[in-house]
Design a protein around this nucleic acid. Sequence first.
DNA 1: TTGAAAGCGCTAACAC
DNA 2: GTGTTAGCGCTTTCAA
Lengths: 335, 335
Amino acid sequence: MVTLKQLAEQLNVSVSTVSKALHNSEEISKDTILRVKELAEHLNYQPNRMALSLKNNQTKTIGVIIPNVLNHFFAKALYAIETEASQQGYSIITCLSNELLSKEKNSLQLLSNGSVDGFIMSLAEETQVNNTIDHITAILNKDIPVVLFDRVADDIDSDKVIIDDYGASYEATKHLICEGRRYIVHISDIDALSVGKLRKNGYLKALEEDNTYTNEPIFINISQDDDLEAVIDQLFKTHKQVDGIISSDNTSGVVALHKALKLGYNIPKDVSIIGFSDDNVLAFTDPKLSTISQHTMDIGKATVELLIDRLNNKNTTKPLTKTIKTNLILRGTTK
Amino acid sequence: MVTLKQLAEQLNVSVSTVSKALHNSEEISKDTILRVKELAEHLNYQPNRMALSLKNNQTKTIGVIIPNVLNHFFAKALYAIETEASQQGYSIITCLSNELLSKEKNSLQLLSNGSVDGFIMSLAEETQVNNTIDHITAILNKDIPVVLFDRVADDIDSDKVIIDDYGASYEATKHLICEGRRYIVHISDIDALSVGKLRKNGYLKALEEDNTYTNEPIFINISQDDDLEAVIDQLFKTHKQVDGIISSDNTSGVVALHKALKLGYNIPKDVSIIGFSDDNVLAFTDPKLSTISQHTMDIGKATVELLIDRLNNKNTTKPLTKTIKTNLILRGTTK
DNA sequence: TTGAAAGCGCTAACAC
DNA sequence: GTGTTAGCGCTTTCAA
């Protein structure tokens, strides 16, 4: 790496002159500025980022901690965050918690040593199950801003970006009821998560509220060790009368669709299915899955905006919670 | 952030004493060491990473540039890289080129200012199509190590991690021929990429080599603007006799499978299909797609190992190319 | 056993 | 218009 010192030596001026020249200081003569810039250009000088960070006490980088990149939602969120951050001149350091509290803790601890200006994160499953938040409040107490998205915790007093999980699920369920469905099953592989609970409740509320709907709510919860396909298979065996399915996560809806087709159901005539996902995750189902779209790009973008705002006027305002609109996108699996 | 200086002041000793104490220097008395450590612990002291980087001229972070996180292969590679890097005490700064040369260039440029110790990357499509490599050699010339994986370029003299694309595709095609298939179509949406070309050639070679195979090779190339489903639909219309499909990328095989089932083909009786992917990407097809597995975790791990080795003994050895074994995994779409 | 000083690369207040 | 100096937080040589 070429340094100011080297430029200074070659030009027989002082380091500070070079520095000022590169910043177009009024103090420096046009001529000197020109000579300095020429050489800098020629040697491809770049200011050392570590030195700048040390000096300015800001790194221009954001720590991003997500539970699992192999989950399409988080991959897309990462994409959105990277895009917006890079546009705003920030780099991102990515950590994957793999749904583990310990790894989440670790990453937070590791990066809070001046590596990043702030964090954007979505809580690990284990963190949510244990309802552990000390490691996050510790960061907040160090005055390092954190923006939570999707999987958040009420007790953490930070900026947040969420969707209206409850409302979205409520609306989707209502839609199924309006279609005339009277045996609607709720499937979820995220029952333990904050968002999973909200979505479940939205479904419940819609059923309870409608007095033409007489069947009991039916919850199929899939845990990590379960064989998703087997569980869904069982669902169709146990509930032959099923005519509506709402899936709270972004895969089980697709599996249900496949299984239903395989079993000879006519979709959407016999059964309507609505999934929960930004886009048609497995883009190639036939018919295409109707979904609640979360606008993941907007979510990611909002997290970066909130964080950068917070960095620019620290402590100025109360923590904000931004709710991103969802859309019910009706494709081929609903009437 | 608490600093050495603050510890020193509170303890009425010098900064250097504190520093030494924290490093268990022999020079310092047991008693002082204890006092220092106690306070450090109590105040949760962490050495400032930027200061360390500046001093040691190493950042303990790796720049990772991938073309697209929404592609399952790259998401998994990122996962593997993050896992291994974090295990070895490195952080990763993630950049997404979005298949664009300009963004790839940019990220490289941006991070080569002392932000990272080295790079792990897979080339953007545009980079491969234009065969532009100057921006990479420029980095290499600055003595910043680069490890390329998957999408590499022969002209770049760096460490590389690849799979035997040619051989894997050759073997898979041979398998189809051995099954008795005599009308095998090659589908690809990555024809422009280094790996795409190799895979195509492997297919070609297998056909040419077998003199019981008389049909011409058939290539279906899907470009970004094409409607994948429409193209595949057309394929089945144009080539009614098709009895084997080999897909060079990780989605078109799945689409072909869906389409074939929809059209009433019996899979694998009528048509065998082999895809190219680490795992059963769309895990829920029925029957399950037979694939060439790339062991993406191994690929990612190898890139990190190569890079760290290179960082530890710079310039010591010639660039290495590590080839990760592939496996032909026969599931439900082959006999 | 402890401390002072220099230096990593940079900026900025203050001389000259 | 240019240079000197101090300081960001840390390590390390050298002196006390």
